Simulated scan of single mutants.
Amino acid sequence: MQMAIYELNAAVRTELGKGASRRLRHADKVPAVLYGGEKDAVSLTLEHNKVAQAAEFEGFYSHILTLNVDGEKVEALLKDIQRHPFKPKIMHLDFQRVDANHKVHTSVPIHFINEEGAPAVKAGGVIAHHANEIEVTCLPKDLPEFIEVDVAKVELGQTLHLSDVVLPGGVSSVELAKGESHDVAVVTIDKPKGAAEESDEDAAE
């Protein structure tokens, strides 16, 4: 992937308010806010077409981004994106400053691999995804773009939980840190309905 996707030019915005934001959008600009760290929040403006291109990539939502703010490079995470209800238009962005020495708290997408070739699927099992992302904390340098979950190792009728997922080094699960009761299901390979009914009948006999 091109690193350009993760680097965007931004300008400090001095005109604030709904009217100013509306004028920006008519000029194909996106209003944004950069906050966090030990600095004050700053209102920004970005080019809509550049943001729209970047927003097509999954990594844009979980990767550390570089904002060139009037010549100064600032590392940040995208925390919120507001889209128009029906037009293909991005209305507003929220960015949070990132400090290399402080842990970030964000969600990382799950990539399920080997689904079609999984033995349990070939045996007629049906995959059910219970989660599409994992909430993590880690230092910015350790933040993964995605987390892989290998479905080939899941047996028929088995549920893979959060504690079964191998996280990259330096990355911790926010939910698991809360205790065993937060060990949520991630993916299940269900037995075919017919097979489940037959086994119930066998048990009854």
Results as ranks from 00 to 15, higher is better:
126 V>I: 15
28 D>H: 14
16 L>F: 05
187 V>H: 01
155 E>D: 15
44 L>M: 05
33 V>E: 09
185 A>H: 04
146 F>T: 02
195 A>L: 12
154 V>T: 14
26 H>Y: 09
33 V>P: 12
30 V>E: 03
68 N>G: 07
74 V>P: 02
84 H>Y: 13
47 E>M: 06
90 I>H: 04
31 P>D: 01
178 K>I: 05
189 I>H: 02
128 A>C: 03
73 K>G: 02
21 S>G: 13
62 S>P: 10
16 L>A: 12
67 L>A: 04
62 S>H: 11
183 D>S: 06
122 K>Y: 08
84 H>Q: 13
196 A>Q: 12
106 T>M: 11
189 I>Q: 04
5 I>W: 13
122 K>T: 11
145 E>L: 15
167 L>W: 08
192 P>V: 14
20 A>Q: 10
124 G>S: 11
112 F>C: 08
21 S>P: 02
143 L>A: 03
11 A>Q: 13
20 A>V: 06
151 V>Q: 00
115 E>P: 07
17 G>M: 08
45 T>F: 04
26 H>G: 06
20 A>C: 10
180 E>I: 07
134 I>L: 00
170 G>S: 13
29 K>P: 04
102 H>Y: 07
178 K>N: 06
54 A>V: 06
204 A>N: 12
200 D>T: 10
15 E>Y: 07
196 A>H: 07
119 P>N: 07
60 F>G: 00
13 R>V: 03
53 Q>W: 15
153 K>F: 07
163 S>V: 01
15 E>G: 03
38 E>H: 15
193 K>V: 15
182 H>T: 07
75 E>N: 14
200 D>G: 02
190 D>Y: 15
118 A>P: 10
32 A>L: 11
138 C>H: 04
104 V>C: 02
92 H>N: 06
193 K>H: 15
142 D>T: 11
198 E>H: 05
41 A>D: 14
23 R>L: 04
74 V>A: 06
80 D>G: 09
34 L>C: 09
28 D>L: 10
115 E>T: 12
30 V>G: 02
7 E>H: 13
9 N>W: 05
205 E>F: 10
182 H>L: 09
98 V>G: 03
112 F>Y: 15
96 Q>M: 12
33 V>C: 11
45 T>H: 02
14 T>E: 12
139 L>P: 04
158 Q>C: 05
102 H>L: 13
142 D>H: 13
130 H>G: 00
88 P>M: 11
15 E>H: 12
78 L>K: 04
105 H>T: 12
124 G>R: 10
134 I>W: 00
40 D>Q: 15
181 S>N: 11
187 V>F: 01
4 A>H: 14
6 Y>V: 05
36 G>V: 07
184 V>D: 08
31 P>A: 03
93 L>C: 03
67 L>I: 09
22 R>K: 12
197 E>N: 06
34 L>A: 08
98 V>K: 05
32 A>Q: 08
139 L>H: 06
189 I>N: 08
192 P>C: 14
150 D>P: 02
171 V>K: 07
164 D>E: 10
162 L>Q: 00
194 G>R: 13
152 A>L: 06
111 H>Q: 10
96 Q>K: 09
131 A>D: 00
67 L>D: 05
140 P>R: 08
16 L>S: 13
101 N>G: 00
183 D>Q: 05
121 V>C: 12
22 R>Y: 11
157 G>E: 08
187 V>N: 00
33 V>L: 10
86 F>H: 09
138 C>E: 03
24 L>G: 01
60 F>P: 01
72 E>Y: 11
